[in-house]
Design a protein around this nucleic acid. Sequence first.
DNA 1: CCTACCGATCGGTAGG
DNA 2: CCTACCGATCGGTAGG
Lengths: 217, 217
Amino acid sequence: MADGAAGPAPGPAPGPAPRRRRTAPDGAKGRARRRDVIAAATELYGEVGYRSASLREVAARAGLSHPGLLHHFGTKEALLLAVLEQRDEDDTVAFVEGRRGVAALAGMVDIVERNTHRPAIVELFCVLSAEATAPDHPAHDWFRRRYETVLAFAADAYRAAAEDGHLRAGVEPEDAARRLVALMDGLQVQFLYDRAGTDMVARLRDELRAELTVPLP
Amino acid sequence: MADGAAGPAPGPAPGPAPRRRRTAPDGAKGRARRRDVIAAATELYGEVGYRSASLREVAARAGLSHPGLLHHFGTKEALLLAVLEQRDEDDTVAFVEGRRGVAALAGMVDIVERNTHRPAIVELFCVLSAEATAPDHPAHDWFRRRYETVLAFAADAYRAAAEDGHLRAGVEPEDAARRLVALMDGLQVQFLYDRAGTDMVARLRDELRAELTVPLP
DNA sequence: CCTACCGATCGGTAGG
DNA sequence: CCTACCGATCGGTAGG
């Protein structure tokens, strides 16, 4: 993961020295600035999406001018990709952590549990993943790949659970993966409209209890 | 339903005759115009959301100028509410149709089946429902109520199924309703990223097969 | 990293 | 229902 969401990207092209680096290794101060800007963008993208979020508003929340922001990220699109890259890094740690079968499925529930207390992340994914269904959206390919990756991870987990004799007869790993991921996404929407009334973790555990022959840890 | 999504609305206020009606009863020609504009807006909102959709682009697709559009709808927000009202009318017919229990659940699957062939509607709901999670979004209350209504409808259906002896032991109607609606929403997102690989109807039937003691019609 | 500016586009109005 | 226009805001650049 942490690939950076491909796309041809206009690129530096041959010519004089590149005027602007897209990942400024300015040292500690620059890295802290970038971190603050990415945090502000994550928040605002979750509130109004990428398209409606202005560089000026992101910059103001991070405490600098919008040309100052562009000094660090180059273009609006590069900022979006930086936000997504950051998400990749954070999640990969929680995700890939060598778990398999039922433990891997429990790990997915853990991520949802964690997100219950980080609504900004829930908003970010909910709003961006919907906005980016448009094929020309700059995050479209990133989300398409993300779904491929997550669905494959879940299907592997179900397959391993079956090998361990922990999956009920008739539960197809690939179909169950589609349902589980859909359930996670749909519960996030309900959660954002009614936080008190939507127990995402409990509903996921309902689903897994019906599919598995062993209780979740 | 078909309430029009409340909100205080600046309103006409006392004073001289209102200069502009928000629902122009211009006769057949006006009604046809309004229909075309609503269709164009439905399409564009599904592509880029409400906030990023310009009145000029909607108007161009409907074949009139943007002040022409505003003659019919008054404000950008009024156009959005007209689109949602139209959705209410269309769905109420398919929905409330006096079915109960397992037949009502089957009716929800039928709606998804129908939407498989109307991707513009899927996009509209997917994109708008995510965008409108922001509390200050003009469609926020409409979606909040819609979820309440749909969740209550599904819970009623599960309860009736239980009365009929068609629900497996241990399936809680309200929890199952949350899961079913989440599944519908989440599958729509997967569908928009991978139409060929996402069989929404089959995955919903998987879920209902695990919950019911009788097969779906 | 700032101020100042650019051309483009936005929702809405004037006036007919 | 149109043309023409308004003030505001957009992403990005110049220049320092």
